[in-house]
């Protein structure tokens, strides 16, 4: 009993430090979230979203969810920031403030959803609860049987790839579908301002196209907007802008 006492008392000090760390990180998350809401420059918002993801990843590490933290850092802070910036190239750089009389509906939705979540909080298991749903039923089975059935040190990989192979297959298909959707909408090979095109996609100029001489053989080609302007028909040019490469 006497020997057991220090062991019982030992977790108290790291617990307080992790608690402080958790509170600090969560406070940072709230501050960043408010900053994102208050900002008008979309560039700054995209950057702050990256910061938000990075802080969230750090918080996941303190919760011992290393795999989730890894994904959050790679996807949230890494690739999605770049994708947002790439998407911003096609859109505005500033967001316009919305007048207050159009914000009552969203405010009501946010308050109701927030109250519903607060109402659900007491049903959540306590942190580290041994009897929570995740720590009973199949979860314990996976932990117990991975060593003999899959023989893999990282149980997360065993669960994701083997026990939950169907789910992961579904995720791969979802990612594939997302990529397919973007490709169908935008295409892989936009011309990046190398030439101007009319609404039907026909080229009006090949000013900076690298292989301009070979393209002249195409029948649809109109070698410059001047010929059309001379005939009095204004060319309806989709504004790709001139290349600055």
């Amino acid at each position: 009993m006497i020997l057991a006492l220090p062991i019982q008392a030992a977790p108290a000090s790291p617990l307080i430090s992790t608690l402080l760390l958790d509170i600090g990180l969560l406070t940072l998350l709230v501050i960043v979230a408010f900053a994102i809401v208050r900002m008008r420059s979309l560039f700054a918002i995209v950057m702050l979203q990256g910061v938000y993801s990075l802080v969230a990843a750090a918080w996941f590490v303190t919760l011992d969810a290393v795999d989730v933290a890894f994904t959050e850092a790679a996807v949230g802070a890494g690739v999605s920031t770049v994708l947002m910036l790439a998407a911003m190239l096609l859109a505005d750089r500033e967001s316009k403030p919305i007048p207050m009389n159009r914000q009552w509906g969203p405010l009501a939705v946010v308050i109701i959803a927030g109250l519903a979540m607060l109402y659900a909080v007491p049903d959540l298991p306590a942190y580290g609860d041994a009897n929570s749903a995740a720590n009973s039923y199949v979860g314990t089975d996976y932990l117990a049987k991975t060593a003999t059935e899959v023989d893999m040190p990282n149980v997360v990989t065993a669960v994701l790839a083997s026990y939950r192979g169907y789910d992961t297959f579904g995720e791969a298909v979802v990612i594939f579908a997302a990529g397919l959707g973007v490709l169908l909408l935008l295409g892989l090979n936009g011309n990046a301002g190398h030439f101007r095109a009319d609404v039907k996609g026909r080229r009006l100029s090949t000013a900076t196209a690298p292989s301009g001489s070979a393209k002249h053989a195409e029948p649809d080609e109109v070698s410059g907007g001047t010929a059309r302007n001379a005939s009095g028909v204004p060319p309806s040019i989709t504004q790709y802008g001139e290349g600055t490469l």
């Binding site: 994708l83 790439a86 096609l90 992961t168 594939f176 973007v182 892989l188 990046a192 490469l245």
Partner: peptide, 23 residues
């Protein structure tokens, strides 16, 4: 999973990046 994820991420990046000249 590696092949699909790499390709899709690059496909989305190429799709958005190829629409506009670099500024």
């Amino acid at each position: 999973v590696l092949t699909t994820v790499t390709s899709v991420m690059l496909a989305i990046f190429y799709a958005f990046g190829s629409r506009q000249p670099e500024i």
